[in-house]
Amino acid sequence: MKRHIIGITVALCLHVSLAAWLISGVSSPAPAPIAAAPVSLVLSQMRIVEQQVEAKQPEAEPAPEVEEVVETEQPVIEEPEPEIVEETPKPVETPPEPKPEVAKVEKPAEPKKPVKKKPEPKKVVEKVKTSQPTKKEEVAKVDPEPNKEVAENPVPSPDPHTDISTAPAIAEQLQLSSAQIVSIEQAYINALQLALEKNKRYPLSAKRRRQEGTSTVEFTITKSGDIAEVRLRDSSGISRLDEAAVKALVTLAQFEPIPDELERTHWKMAVPIRFQLN
C-alpha cells in the first residue's frame, strides 16, 4: 500500500504542476495571434491582387491611350454606320484620294480589335450608343485628316474621350508614374500591419470578458522607420483594448525605413487595430 501512496502522490504532483503550467503559460498567449491574423492576411491578399491589376495596366499604357481613341471611332464605324463601311470599299475604287486614307483607317482599327475587347469593351459600347451622333461627326472629320496622327494623338477627339472614360483615362495617366508607388506604398503598409498584428497582445482581462473592438491609432513614421507621436484616434469603447493598441505601436517603436521611392521624410498614418476573439 505504501508503494501505491507514493506512486499516486508523485504522479498527482507531476500532472497538477504540468496542467497548471499549461493553463497559465501556454494557453493565454497562444490564441492571441490566431485571433486577428487571418483577417489581415485576407486583406493583404486582396490588396496584392489589386496591385497586380494596377501593375499590369501601366505596362499596356502607352498603347491603351491610343487604343481608346480608336475604340471610340471604331464601334461607330461598325455599329451605327455600316453604310459607311460598305461605302468605303466601293468609293475606294473610283476616287483615288479617299482610298489610301480609308484603308489606313481600317488597318489600325482592325488589328486592335482583339486588344480592345479585353480592357473595357462593355463600357465603351454602352457609352458609345448614348453619344453616337457626336462621334459620327468626328469620324467624318477624322477621315480627311492624316491617319497616323489620328491613331497616335488623342487630340482630335479629346472631348468624347474624356466624356466616355474620364476616370480610367485620368487614372491611367497618373498611374504612368504612380502605380508602382502605390504598390510600394501598399506593400509597406501591409508589412506594417503584419508587424503590428504580431506585436499586439490581447489583454487577458479583456479576453476573459470576451470584449472585442477596433481601435484606430494615429502615429507618425519617420524616414528611418521610427514610430513617434502615437495617440489614439478612434476608441474601441473599451479602454483596455485602446491601451493595448497604443502599446502595440509603442513597443514596435522601430519599423523598416520608408522606401526611397515614396520620397517621404515622414508619414502620418492611422491604422485600425482589431481585437477579435475566435
Binding site: 508503494r3 501505491h4 504522479a11 498527482l12
Partner: peptide, 14 residues
C-alpha cells in the same frame, strides 16, 4: 498518463 506514472513508480519500488 497519471495512471502510468503512478503504477510505474509502484512497480519500481516493488
Amino acid at each position: 498518463s497519471f495512471t502510468v506514472v503512478w503504477l510505474s513508480i509502484e512497480r519500481w519500488l516493488f
